[in-house]
């Protein structure tokens, strides 16, 4: 199993959409390496024929009657938004210039 490098942590943070400063990378990268080291043992514990468990109790699809139910009003849905404009969520630009 490969070690986790500082560059890899930077890449993972990028995938997770977190800007990490150099100071944060210095702080977090070695800690992550230690954590990974402590859980590494798991990679050869279970045999191939063991089925995975995603959920502690057996689950089945749950359906309900297709009837209208009260939900949040637009005001309520927008009540926690950082910015609202014309009764909508106002967000920064999504596309670049090019």
């Amino acid at each position: 199993m490969p070690e986790i490098t500082r560059e890899e942590v930077r890449h993972l943070a990028d995938l997770a959409r977190i800007d990490l400063s150099d100071a944060e990378l210095d702080h977090l990268a070695p800690q992550l390496a230690v954590i990974l080291d402590s859980i590494r043992s798991i990679s050869d514990v279970a045999a191939d024929d063991i089925p995975p468990t995603s959920h502690p109790l057996p689950l089945t699809n749950v359906f309900r009657e297709d009837v209208a139910r009260p939900g949040l009003t637009a005001e309520e849905a927008l009540s926690g938004a950082p910015q609202v404009e014309d009764h909508r969520f106002a967000v920064p630009r999504i596309l670049g210039e090019e």
Binding site: I39, S43, D44, V45, I50, P51, P52, T53
Partner: peptide
């Protein structure tokens, strides 16, 4: 497979 998949198998065990 090495991590999450294995963890789910350990969960079964």
């Amino acid at each position: 497979d090495a991590y999450y998949g294995q963890a789910q198998k350990v969960r079964t065990l």
